Structures are given as C-alpha cells and as structure tokens.
Computed example of a mutant assay.
Amino acid sequence: MDNVELLMSFGLTRQEARVYILLLGEGALSGYEAAKRLGISRSNAYAALAGLVDKGAAYVAEEQAVQYHAVSIKEFCSNKLHYMEELSETLERQIPKQKQEDAKYLTIRGRRHIEDKFRNMLKEVKERVYLSVSASVADLFREELAELTAQNKKVVLLTDEQYILDGAIIYYAGKRSFASGHTGCEETVDGQIRLITDSSYALTGELQDEETSACLYSANPNLVKLLKDALANEIKLIEIEGKSKDIDKEG
C-alpha cells in the first residue's frame, strides 16, 4: 500500500490524502498554492483542505492570506486511534449483545482478515490455546502469546524451528509438514495454520499472500475435536521420536 492508501485507512479521501502529503512536505500553503502544485482545480483543493481541517489533519493560519498547516502524521494518527477507541467503547455499550456463536463453518479470506481473526481469538482466550504454525507466523503474534503466558494461561505451540517463548510448551516438528499432520515431507508448509482456543473455537487453513489466503473458522465441536486429535497425535509422535533419539544416544 502506498502512503495515499494508508492515509485513506485513517478516514481521508484520496484527494485529501494527496493534499495532506503535500502540506507535510511543503509546510504552510494556501488553497491556490495547493491546487497549483497538484494540478487540480481550486474548488477541489479547498474542498480537500476543508476536509483535512474537519478531520483534524490540518490547522488554519489566518494571517495576511489564509494558509493551512499540516498536523504531524504521528499526532494525526494518534488522535484518530484515540477517537476510534472511544467510539468502539460506545458501540460496545450501545449495540445489542451478539448472539452466542453457533456451529456454522465460516470462510475467512485475505491475509489481513485472517491475521485479525487469529489475533482476536488469542485476545479472547480464557484458559488455553493450542496452535500449529511456522516460527515466522508465530512471530506475528508473539506479543499476544507472551501476554497469555504472562497471565499463566496454557500455550502449546507446534512449530518448524527452534522457538523461544517463556512459559509456553513448545514442540519442535523439524522438517515435518507439521501443519497438515503428515510426516515424511522434505519441507514444511510455512503458511499452514491450526489454532484452537479454550477447546471451543478453531481456525485452520493457509496464510499466504492477500489474495490466496483462506481459512475455516468454527465453533463446531466436531471440527474442534478433529483438530485437537490431530495435534495430540502429532505431539505423541514428536515425543516418541525424541525418546528414540535419547535411547540411541544412550546406546
């Protein structure tokens, strides 16, 4: 995503984002100057500047000629996030409570949406979490996982490389295709994920690029049990292989 698209995620229109970037780079400008620099009509420039002022991204300096000053990107984003947090709390109080999740199977597409779901599932953990992911994927959620272990919640991780996470139970599956549960593969499947939280919710699928990523999410007890059994079998196999290696060393 380029800077314009990133700013649009904070509520600016494309035109407002372009004018805002110009103000950040040039300093104070009048509407006429902004229009001339960007090659847009004065009416569009003034509309964009008014929008920036209204959204807290610019201030007006009324001196000999009206000029617009950009609010720093850090201040603008921080203010926006604070405001959205306040709105979120208000909505949580006012919106009717969500009905209890049923056992439907839901498809989640797009890498960002899958990461969001994964992260939110971790934040909702009450007692325990089991996950089978590559070390690189685990790193995406290190902060949330560390928070769980700090709260003495059980975290069991199966991964493809040596991984350090204080308080977690970690199993190293090596070059096994740990995420699919099969053995004998020469390479791990880096983007495959399995996540079970509180023995009640499951997320499984592939985390690849934005277009091809897709996962299945459900509170269906059959899917949860299926994934739990697969993970348990994988752990047993890792433990057996570990004991075999110990015996070989002793012999």
Rank of each mutant, 00 (worst) to 15 (best):
Y217V: 15
E234H: 12
L22C: 03
E206M: 10
L237I: 10
I21W: 02
L140Y: 04
L7M: 08
A219M: 14
L87D: 10
A61L: 15
E187K: 14
N79T: 04
L207P: 07
L52I: 04
K97V: 14
D209V: 02
E124H: 10
S43H: 07
E234T: 11
A230S: 15
G56F: 04
Y171T: 03
A28T: 12
N79P: 06
Q94N: 14
N3T: 13
I73K: 07
S136F: 09
S72L: 09
R194H: 03
L49D: 02
R128V: 06
D54F: 05
Y130L: 09
L223F: 10
E33L: 03
E186C: 11
E127A: 11
L29S: 00
S41K: 09
G27I: 00
K243C: 09
R18K: 14
K154A: 14
S213F: 04
E101V: 07
T149W: 02
T183F: 15
Y130W: 15
E144I: 02
A138S: 12
G205C: 09
R176P: 00
V19T: 07
F76A: 01
Q151D: 15
D2L: 08
R111L: 07
C77K: 13
Q162N: 11
F10S: 01
G174H: 09
D246Y: 12
G251N: 15
I108A: 09
C215H: 08
D2H: 11
L23D: 03
Y105G: 07
K104Y: 06
L24G: 00
L91V: 13
V224C: 09
Q100T: 13
E5K: 15
G167A: 03
I40H: 06
H182M: 13
N3G: 08
E86W: 04
Y83C: 05
R111Q: 07
K243D: 08
N152V: 05
A17K: 00
K80Y: 08
H113V: 12
